[in-house]
Each structure stands twice: as C-alpha cells, then as structure tokens.
C-alpha cells in the first residue's frame, strides 16, 4: 500500500519536473538543457522573496512564476533563437546556459543547508494507516490540475492550438500566419514556468541545493525519452512508469539505486523502442 501511495506521489513529482521540458521540446524542437537550472533558480528566487524580503508566500510564488517565465523567454529571444534548427548547437548553447547559472550560483555561495522553503500546509494525514503529509497531497493535486490545464489549453485556446500546429509542421503553421519565433518564445516561457512551479512544489520537501539542477535535468530527460520526445501525454505516463520503478527499487534494493533506474530506463528505451512509448508520429507518417 505504501508503494502505491508513495509511487503516485513520486510519479507526479517526476511528471511535474518533466512537463516543462516536454513542452518546449514538443513545440520548438529545442532540447532545453537549461531546464534544471531554471528549476533551481526558481527555488532561490522564491527563497529570496519569502525568507530574505519577507513577502507573503503566495505572492512570492506568483512573482517567481512570472520572473522565471520572463527569464525563459529572454533566454530564447536572445540566445537560443540564433542556433534554432541546429541540434548540436541547441544542446551546447542551452547546456552552457544551465551550467553558467548553476555554477554561478554555487560560486556565489548559494550552498549548504540553510536554504529551505516552507511547505504549503503543515501536518499530515493517515491514508490506509500510512502517514502522508499534506504537502505531498498538494503536489499530487496540483500535478493533476496542471495536466488538465495543459490539455484544455492546447485543445481549446487559439494560442494553444497554434502551438500544436507548430509542433506538428512548422512550415505549414507559418503559411497560416503563425509566427514561429513568437510561438517558441511562448513555449519557452510556459516551459520555464512549469519548471518554476515544479521547483516551488517539490523543493519544500528538502533543501534547495545546486546539485538538484543536474538531477532534475536527467530525470526530465529520462521521462521524456521513455515517453517519446515531444509527447506530453507520453511524458506523464512515463513519469508513472519510472516513478513506480523508483519506489520499488527504493523499497527492495536501497535508496541509492534511485538514479540508476532513470538512467537504465533511458538505455532500455533507446534499445527496445527508440521513439519512446508514444512516438506515434513516425508510424503515422509511414501510413500516409
């Protein structure tokens, strides 16, 4: 039973980490290797508002989301736009940005145990005799809400539909008057906001450390590769697959194997089904 409960929570956390990455890749085909750095910055920005400036927690969450969205948009507008379409350069550029941010933070002295965020709701509740704290339930709730919001956004709004059009065929979208650079900026801003949201939700469960940036990046990439790069629903399902696999390893093998699971998942997916669980795009193309 505890496997079920903690598996679900862990899976939702993974999904939150990965959605931003999946969204940006799905729309602009840019693998945003600065994703982990954006995640960590959001943690420190929120910390700055809450602990250093003493702003109300909800307000600082709101402000952080806006700031990180703008940061993401600026990264695209001034740096990534120049290397768009060249896969290797995209990876190098975005990874360099991520490294610069993370190591810059480390150099600036943001390390140690002093950086923590408050949880949303204190206390815990027993579900089937297993104690679960309220904050983890909030994580699951907001995770579900985010997935639902993304689905509605991409199926029923003008911008969301345009984003999907661009994800499928950029040139056809151009012909219909959809500006691809504008859409990529929007995608990058949304993806960064999702990274920020994940950070705000997940960081209160531990300390804010710079290393989290690298772990989040690897987990996000693992989830996206297993789910099929560019497929958001695939990413959510893959998050559950890896999430439960991780909890099972923790229970039966030991917690230090947790990261190995994600990396093994990448290797096995690439061997068995390189397009991922939901890489249907190729199949469709062959049929037409």
């Amino acid at each position: 039973m505890d496997i079920l409960i903690y598996g679900t929570i862990n899976s939702m956390a993974l999904a939150l980490m990965a959605l931003g990455f999946a969204l940006v890749y799905g729309i602009s085909r840019i693998p945003n290797f600065a994703h982990g750095a954006l995640y960590v910055i959001s943690g420190f920005v929120t910390w700055g508002f809450v602990r250093a400036l003493g702003v109300n927690y909800l307000l600082s969450v709101f402000l952080t989301m806006i700031i990180i969205g703008v940061v993401g948009a600026l990264i695209y507008r001034f740096i990534l736009i120049r290397v768009r379409g060249m896969a290797i350069s995209e990876i190098i550029a975005s990874y360099a940005i991520g490294l610069a941010i993370l190591e810059g933070l480390r150099w600036g002295g943001f390390k140690g145990m002093t950086y923590t965020l408050p949880v949303f709701v204190e206390g815990s509740v027993d579900i089937a005799e297993i104690p679960v704290d309220f904050h983890r339930l909030v994580v699951v709730g907001i995770g579900v809400a985010v997935v639902a919001f993304l689905w509605l956004f991409t199926h029923h709004t003008r911008i969301g539909l345009a984003l999907r059009g661009m994800a499928q065929d950029e040139r056809a979208a151009l012909m219909l008057g959809i500006d691809s650079d504008l859409m990529a900026v929007v995608a990058m801003a949304l993806g960064s906001m999702l990274a920020g949201l994940a950070a705000i939700l997940l960081l209160p469960l531990g300390n804010i450390v710079v290393e989290a940036g690298y772990n989040v990046l690897i987990l996000a990439i693992a989830v996206c590769i297993v789910g099929g790069l560019g497929s958001w629903m695939g990413a959510v399902l893959a998050a559950f697959l890896i999430g439960f696999a991780q909890i099972l390893t923790v229970t039966y093998l030991g917690s230090h194997y947790q990261m190995v699971v994600a990396l093994l998942a990448i290797i096995f997916t690439l061997i068995l089904r390189p397009s991922g669980l939901f890489g249907q795009q190729k199949e469709l193309e062959e049929r037409v």
């Binding site: 999907r164 059009g165 499928q168 065929d169 040139r171 056809a172 012909m175 795009q281 037409v288």
Partner: peptide
C-alpha cells in the same frame, strides 16, 4: 495552401 497539403497529422 502548400503542395502535398501538409495537414497536421495528429490533430
């Protein structure tokens, strides 16, 4: 309206 139609295949 392009050659080979370029429909969005997954929508």
């Amino acid at each position: 309206c392009p050659e080979r139609r370029r429909i969005f295949p997954e929508s």
